[in-house]
Computed example of a mutant assay.
Amino acid sequence: MLVKWIRCAVVDRRGFERGQRKWAGLLGEPGFRGQGGGWSRQHPDVAHVFGFWESRAFYDSFMARTHDRLASAQTGTYRDMQAKLFDHVFDLKTGFEPRFTDADVVRIAHCTVRADRAEHFTLMQQQVWNPAMAGSPGMVRGLFAAAPADEFLVLSMWLSAAERGKYQVERVERLSLRAQTEVDIQAIGGDIVQLEPTWTV
């Protein structure tokens, strides 16, 4: 599965939200699995959108045919758009499905890992971080995905920001030491996204 993560700095919030609803036109596109997103809880004018496709071939076909028509509804409503593509590597917790209706927030961690540590980083995600997150009552589902140049995306869906906060306070520092995260990671960025139900396709 191909994962697309889009981050936009929005200058016209109402216009952007209106345009976001036009993406309902994705329904029926060959290979399209689902899309959702919302506003950053840390930066009020930043929007995040997550799209899921069965394969790169289906995605490329959509980009060549339909994308520009759907995207035109949001022209002028944002600046500094960044779009990144990742390949799904494994699920966090149970079988991942691109559904957004049973979660309230999404946590994203975007990591650039030292080339010689990528294998270790992936192993630690499986053996340390994944079981810890899966054992947190408020965590719904998630995935671990990779891109070239040792870039990784960890996406987790939570029942609420409060539930996710409990997990963070209780465990992150201890787990980080155990997983040797600081040794593996060159750069890390992330955000907590308040999901907007009307953006779900």
Rank of each mutant, 00 (worst) to 15 (best):
Met81Tyr: 03
Ala162Ser: 14
Thr77Val: 08
Phe50Leu: 14
Thr66Pro: 02
Thr112Met: 08
Thr198Ala: 06
Phe86Leu: 05
Gln127Leu: 15
Ala132Gly: 04
Gly138Val: 13
Phe121Arg: 06
Pro131Lys: 06
Pro197Asn: 08
Cys111Asn: 14
Arg7Thr: 05
Met133Ala: 08
Arg21Gly: 07
Phe152Asp: 00
Asp60Ser: 12
Val113Gly: 00
Phe62Trp: 12
Arg141Phe: 01
Thr112Gly: 01
Val154Ser: 00
Leu153Tyr: 03
Arg99Gln: 10
Gln194Met: 15
Gly142Trp: 02
Gly51Thr: 13
Met1Arg: 05
Gln180Pro: 02
Ser61Cys: 12
Gly36His: 05
Leu177His: 13
Lys4Val: 15
Val201Trp: 01
Phe58Thr: 02
Val201Gln: 03
Ala57Ser: 07
Arg107Pro: 00
His88Leu: 03
Asp191Ala: 12
Leu175Lys: 02
Ser40Pro: 01
Asp184Tyr: 01
Thr66Leu: 05
Gln126Met: 05
Met133Asp: 03
Trp39Met: 06
Ala162Cys: 07
Val46Ser: 00
Val140Lys: 02
Gln82Phe: 04
Glu151Cys: 07
Asp60Tyr: 10
Ser72Gln: 08
Asn130Ile: 11
Lys4Tyr: 03
Val49Ala: 01
Trp5Asp: 00
Arg7Tyr: 04
Gly189Val: 10
Leu143Ile: 15
Arg56Gly: 05
Trp129His: 01
Thr198Pro: 02
Pro44Glu: 10
Glu54Trp: 11
Ala64Trp: 07
Gln35Leu: 12
Val183Gln: 15
Gly189Glu: 15
Ile188His: 00
Ile192Arg: 00
His120Asn: 04
Trp129Gln: 00
Phe52Thr: 01
Thr101Asp: 13
Trp53Met: 02
Leu123Thr: 11
Asp104Leu: 03
Phe52Val: 03
Ala9Thr: 15
Val172Pro: 00
Gln42Asp: 13
Gly38Ala: 04
